[in-house]
């Protein structure tokens, strides 16, 4: 697997129509595991993830991967808060990224069947993706993101608006992907989820990173007043 890390952001920022959405952010991410970006709504979690992935325009500073940026993007996937499914069958959704990479159809179909089984969508392989429930669509989006065996997957609040069962299933898939060696960077404002799955936490507020470190010390002894207030459940802006 291509080594993308460390990922270094130096004074990275993005502005739109004169308004700074995120930044300046100085951040270095390395190692393995699951990094959770937490913060209240509007803190800039999604924009930060998009910025790192290259889907949002960097208007200042720099983002550096261990390898060439173009190559780094080839080894990443992105899962959106609202799952985007192609107007195709579940199987065709799964084989799509593989076919883009020139994988032969028969091999792609085998991989699709395997991944459908892993995420529990095998009974729906021939169904249109649009008829799946919200949780199933998100599982499909995650399986499609993982099927190419990327080194890194960004997940933007993948379980927002899902019920407990779907959330647990998705967390299971993510933990398995982590065990398989995929680095995951996930945003959430669900503290329970962050505590359950995070190895590393980035706390963001007002577009700026306030705290970053291993999950356990962060949840036990947050350093900044903002993080303490956020974890206590106070309203922070």
């Amino acid at each position: 697997m291509t080594d993308l890390f460390p990922l270094t952001l130096r004074a990275a920022e993005t502005t739109r129509r004169g308004k700074r959405l995120v930044g300046p952010v100085d951040l270095t991410l390395d190692g393995q595991g699951l990094c959770v970006v937490i913060g209240p709504n509007g803190a800039g979690k999604t924009t930060l993830l998009r910025l790192m992935h290259g889907a949002a325009r960097l208007t200042g500073g720099s983002i550096q991967w261990a390898c060439d940026t173009k190559e780094a993007r080839q080894h990443q996937s992105f899962v959106f808060q609202q799952p985007v499914v192609l107007r195709r069958t579940v199987e065709d959704n799964l084989i799509y990224p593989l076919r883009l990479r020139g994988v032969p159809r028969s091999e792609a179909r085998r991989a699709a069947r395997d991944w459908a089984q892993r995420v529990g969508l095998d009974p729906h392989l021939a169904h249109r993706a649009s008829v799946l429930s919200g949780g199933e669509k998100q599982k499909l989006a995650i399986a499609r993101a993982l099927i190419t065996k990327p080194a890194l997957v960004f997940l933007d609040e993948p379980t927002a608006s899902l019920d407990g069962r779907a959330m647990r299933e998705i967390e299971g898939i993510l933990l398995q992907a982590k065990a398989d060696g995929t680095r995951l960077i996930l945003s959430t404002h669900d503290m329970g989820q962050a505590r359950r799955i995070a190895d590393e936490v980035v706390f963001i507020l007002g577009g700026a990173v306030h705290e970053k470190g291993p999950a356990e010390p962060f949840f036990d002894r947050p350093e900044t007043a903002e993080a303490q207030a956020f974890l206590k459940g106070d309203i922070v802006e």
């Binding site: 080839q74 959106f80 985007v84 192609l86 107007r87 883009l100």
Partner: peptide
């Protein structure tokens, strides 16, 4: 309309212009 729906996904997948066009034409 379909492009508005697919935009973020296809951009995140590093899909080429030609592949984007093929995808849209097929799915629509």
């Amino acid at each position: 309309e379909l492009w508005a729906e697919y935009h973020d996904l296809l951009i995140s997948m590093n899909v080429s212009q030609l592949q984007k066009m093929q995808t849209l034409l097929w799915d629509a």
